[in-house]
Simulated scan of single mutants.
Amino acid sequence: MNATARFALPLLHAGQAQKELFHNEALLIADMLMQPCVEALGRAAPPADPVAGQCWIVGDSPEGAWAGSAGALALWTEGGWRFVAPREGMAVWVAGDELVARHVAGAWHAGRLAAAQLVIDGEQVVGPREPAIDEPDGGSVVDAEARAAIEAILQALRAHGLIDGG
């Protein structure tokens, strides 16, 4: 085995010449993957003047030095570009958008959150989606203003996905 299973970090071997090269390469990649932060998500071409330590997520149709690295994290180092293929569930901070991007089902998704519930200060404020609620109908007295308000509330709840569309 010459590399780690998850991120292909180079491994050292007994009697290996120039071990520092392999060790330094592993450190560069580990540095990229530790609390990853990228400048932008989905660029096709590398920037003209990158700074060592800057990282990007390569777009679907990469060009130039990024050709063949679609979807990968691209890190600029003093020795050139380093690429790491993402793993399922990997999350990165996209500095330019101020969003978290997560790699799911072979693609990057920015700004999506997945949770069973939203808890703030120990209290659940949003939980699983509830079933549909019927529009107001019938009754012995029709209050048009109340009915309009109820319908507006239902539309807002549906628009936010908190109840089913029915």
Rank of each mutant, 00 (worst) to 15 (best):
D143R: 13
I29V: 14
L154W: 11
A95G: 01
G79C: 04
E145A: 15
F22P: 00
F22E: 11
A72M: 14
R129W: 00
H109C: 04
G166Q: 10
L157C: 09
W66G: 01
A148H: 14
A146E: 13
Q35H: 06
A148R: 15
A101V: 07
E88K: 08
G139Y: 01
E151S: 14
P131C: 04
Q117L: 07
P10M: 06
P10W: 08
A65Y: 08
F22W: 15
D49G: 06
A110D: 02
L75D: 13
F22T: 04
D121N: 12
L27C: 11
A44V: 00
G53Y: 04
P46A: 12
G71F: 12
D121G: 05
T4G: 06
V125Q: 13
P128A: 14
M34K: 10
G53V: 02
G106P: 11
E123L: 10
L28W: 10
D121V: 03
A48C: 01
G53P: 03
W66Q: 05
D137E: 15
V141Y: 09
A101G: 10
L73P: 00
Q155K: 15
E88A: 11
E88I: 10
D143I: 08
W81Y: 10
F7C: 03
P47V: 00
I133G: 01
E151T: 15
A72C: 15
R6M: 03
P50T: 01
Q16N: 03
I57W: 02
T77R: 05
A67V: 07
H23G: 02
W56V: 01
G139N: 10
G127N: 06
L162W: 08
L162V: 14
R158F: 05
Q117D: 15
P62T: 00
D164A: 15
P128H: 09
D97A: 15
L9A: 04
E151F: 05
A40T: 09
V58C: 13
E98S: 14
G165H: 08
P10C: 02
G53E: 11
L73T: 07
Q117R: 06
V38A: 03
W93R: 02
G59F: 11
A110L: 08
V104F: 09
E123A: 12
G111H: 07
A116Q: 14
L99P: 01
E123H: 11
M1E: 06
L41T: 02
